[in-house]
Amino acid sequence: MTSETLFSLRAVNKVYDGGVHALKDISFEVHKGEFLVVIGLSGSGKSTLLRCMNALHRPTSGEICYRGRDIAAATSREAREIRQRVAMIFQHFNLVPRTTVLKNVLTGALGRTGTARSLVGMFADEERKRAMRFLDLLGIADKARHRADQLSGGQQQRVAIARALTQEPEVLLADEPVASLDPATCHTIMDYLQKVNRELGITIVCNLHFLSLVRQYASRVVALRAGELVFDGQPADIDEAWFRRIYGEEAKEVHVN
């Protein structure tokens, strides 16, 4: 791929306080406009990897450069600036309960709103318009006044995507975005991510369990096994042999229809 490099990871290691070695010498690059999918078993380090790319976690060693700036060495102010450009959505949506959908989406603008202004709820009018535009894009503008915790799982994930888009990000990290949703809703969410990728040109790095989804949506795949990078290539290249190597000898592929 010839387009510009957004992320470049070099020999990234992450060892948790408990001694778990979650990432081992991970090196790869993320290019602009990609729909990169990270696969691997639960506990293979996928979530840790994404959290390191969003500066929620610090790698123990190695370099994670976003547009040439090392996230691992960033101050907390720099980390916050990077997070604004590198949005994230989560398996359990991580919306704020007892708060309206619109207010949840507006929190995407916190990074560029002053602390004092945000505390009294003085978001600029253009921010509100922007938030409503993204809710509209995700087909849930009619839910703007509802409490976020009263929506279904699929709707909550769409709110989370709208919150991420409100950040006006360049990259969207998605940590198992469909793992707690039913198969039908699963495709809706993946279609929206594809739309975000194609229509808004936002680069996507997405953790997934199901290989069938990977083949359908990914433009490139990397695979982790026990914290190590074992595959980096095209989704079509993952044949039976690779599948066993990534998921273990006992594994059988499950399809989501």
Partner: peptide, 23 residues
């Protein structure tokens, strides 16, 4: 979860408390 969600948007410490914990 909500704390992580708000933090991931680039919110400051005070904003995280106000928007993720207070509600």
């Amino acid at each position: 979860g909500p704390i992580e969600g708000i933090q991931s948007t680039g919110a400051s410490f005070i904003q995280t408390i106000w928007f993720a914990i207070v509600p």
